[in-house]
Simulated assay, not measured.
Amino acid sequence: MSSGASQPNNISKVRLQPDPFLNELTNMFERSTEKGSVWVTLKYSSDKSKLQRNKMKTAGEKIEYKCLIRATDGKKTISTLVGQKDHQRFQASYATILKARMTALKKRERKDKRKAADSDKKRGVLKK
């Protein structure tokens, strides 16, 4: 008999502090460079159960909400909680990692402004 505590599909889940989370996220991006994807989700969370939150509300205590960030590559799931005080520093580091690792994205094709204006003029003449 096995208990229901085992993880489905052998996916390991780890809650990390923000800095180790960013390091592990970088490693995930490196492992998935050739093949695979990394999914990152952000969620508003208090990290308390509904029962605990209700007790805190009735007692008049302030509930501190944080940002729960999860990342997975399909094999490993990591997460962290970021409070309001650390959010700007974390967001700046996170943005730097994303800019450095999203190299497979294609650049958007932009029309030359002059060519676009000329083609609009031609269409206007043809429509009349």
Results as ranks from 00 to 15, higher is better:
Gly4Ser: 15
Val125Arg: 06
Val40Glu: 05
Leu98Ser: 08
Ser45Val: 09
Lys106Met: 09
Leu98His: 07
Met1Arg: 12
Lys35His: 13
Ala5Thr: 08
Arg110Met: 03
Leu51Trp: 11
Lys85Glu: 03
Glu24Ile: 09
Ala100Cys: 06
Leu81Asp: 04
Pro20Leu: 00
Gln88His: 07
His87Gly: 06
Ala104Asn: 10
Glu30Asp: 14
Lys76Thr: 01
Thr26Leu: 00
Ala92Tyr: 02
Asn54Lys: 13
Lys50Ile: 14
Lys107Thr: 14
Leu126Gly: 15
Leu22Asn: 05
Ala71Val: 01
Arg114Lys: 14
Leu98Cys: 14
Arg108Gln: 13
Arg101Met: 11
Ile69Gly: 00
Gly36Trp: 02
Glu61Lys: 13
Thr72Leu: 01
Ala59Cys: 04
Gln84Asp: 09
Arg31Lys: 15
Asp47Cys: 10
Phe90Leu: 00
Ser6His: 10
Ser2Tyr: 14
Lys66Gln: 07
Ala104Tyr: 10
Asp19Leu: 07
Lys43Leu: 12
Val125His: 13
Lys115Tyr: 09
Ser93Thr: 03
Pro8Glu: 12
Pro20Lys: 01
Asp73Val: 02
Ala95Gly: 09
Ala116Glu: 15
Tyr65Arg: 03
Arg70His: 09
Ser32Gln: 15
Arg108Ser: 10
Thr33Asp: 04
Ala71Lys: 02
Glu24Trp: 01
Ala104Arg: 15
Arg114Tyr: 11
Val82Tyr: 00
Arg123Gln: 10
Ala59Ile: 03
Val125Tyr: 12
Met28Ser: 09
Pro18Cys: 11
Val82Cys: 00
Thr72Ile: 00
Glu24Val: 11
Lys115Cys: 05
Asp86Phe: 01
Met56Lys: 03
Glu34Thr: 08
Asn54Arg: 14
Gln91Val: 06
Ala117Gly: 07
Phe29Asp: 01
Lys115Trp: 08
Thr80Leu: 00
Gly74Leu: 02
Ala71Ile: 02
Leu68Glu: 05
Leu25Asn: 02
Leu68Arg: 04
Lys76Phe: 00
Glu61Trp: 06
Tyr65Phe: 10
Leu68Pro: 04
Ser45Tyr: 07
Arg101Ser: 13
Asp118Trp: 05
Lys111Ile: 08
Val38Tyr: 10
Val38Met: 10
Arg110Ile: 06
Ala71Asn: 00
Ser93Glu: 03
Gly60Cys: 07
Asp19Gln: 13
Glu64Phe: 03
Ala104Trp: 12
Ser45Ile: 08
Leu68Phe: 05
Leu16Arg: 02
Ile97Gln: 04
Lys75Cys: 04
Leu105Phe: 14
Ala116Asn: 12
Lys111Arg: 12
Lys55Met: 12
